[in-house]
């Protein structure tokens, strides 16, 4: 379904600030894979997701989605296939627009925007039902400006927007990192529910090893722009944090660089 081969990206090449974020990364995702991605700071996790989303073009390598080469496709065009939730809760929604308007824009992802009403009759009813499934009381606030919502509520709405029009691939970039622990766990459970109900192929970056093990059917660990650990199936289910750290040290030859990831439960 997703096939990435030899992906390379260096920021500020040829300067003292040159930083190789992706160093020939290969990754293959099966249909329906829910992959958690973990790695230290600067391992290239977000760079990988941004490359898939088309925020910029990679230096080398190829990204294929369902056999289609999307390596050079503009960001807004490949958005047709992708659902995205960002780390910053402010980034996924338009704050000065109503909840319903945000959802209506998301519902038309991948279609040509036309000169017809932006929200059709009956659409609001559908949005009310969908918002009710979030269990945040948003179903009665369809005409509220999104900017009035809390970070957790905005992240939940973004998640809904990302999956409203079933994406081929869902990209979650530490989407619970900026939330308080209680809200984070709520949004994460919601994510799991939406992903499993819709059988979405998903890449989820997390800084939390516990979550990385608890969610999804496959776990990859990144280090210096490559995938160094790739565990799936039964092996992943039985995985412990200690084993994961050991695997990381064996394959990368260095200690795992983020205390935050190890300590957070």
């Amino acid at each position: 379904m997703l096939k990435i081969s030899g992906l390379e990206k260096t920021f500020n090449p040829g300067t003292v600030n040159a930083k190789t974020a992706l160093a020939g990364l290969d990754l293959y995702l099966e249909d329906g894979d829910f992959v958690t991605v973990i790695g230290g700071n600067g391992a290239g996790k977000s760079t990988l997701l941004n490359a898939i989303a088309g925020v910029w073009k990679p230096d080398f390598g190829k990204i294929e989605l369902d056999g289609l080469d999307i390596t050079g496709m503009p960001e807004h065009k490949r958005a047709k296939f992708l659902g995205r939730v960002f780390q910053d809760p402010m980034m996924g929604t338009a704050p000065d627009m109503e909840i319903a308007e945000n959802l209506a824009i998301a519902a038309r992802r991948g279609t040509k925007r036309r000169f017809v009403w932006g929200i059709k009759k009956g659409e609001r009813e559908r949005y009310k039902e969908l918002l009710a499934t979030l269990e945040l009381g948003l179903e009665s606030r369809l005409t509220s400006k999104v900017g009035l919502l809390s970070g957790g509520q905005r992240q939940a709405v973004t998640l809904l927007m990302a999956t409203l029009n079933r994406p081929k691939l869902l990209l979650l970039d530490e989407h619970t990192a900026a939330l308080d622990p209680k809200t984070a766990s709520k949004v994460l459970k919601l994510t799991d529910k939406i992903v499993s109900e819709n059988k979405l192929t998903t890449l989820m970056i997390t800084h939390n090893m516990h979550d990385a093990i608890a969610y999804g059917n496959r776990l990859i660990m990144m280090h210096e722009g490559r995938v160094v650990v790739d565990v799936s199936g039964e092996e992943k289910k039985k995985l412990t944090i200690e084993q994961l750290l050991q695997l990381f040290e064996q394959s990368s030859g260095s200690k795992f660089g983020s205390d935050k990831a190890i300590l957070s439960k």
Binding site: A53, E75, H76, A79, F86, T93, A94, D96, R109, A162
Partner: peptide, 13 residues
């Protein structure tokens, strides 16, 4: 209002 969100939702900004 939000160019990043617009691009992610397939809008040609």
């Amino acid at each position: 209002d939000n160019p990043a969100m617009s691009k992610a939702q397939g809008v040609n900004i």
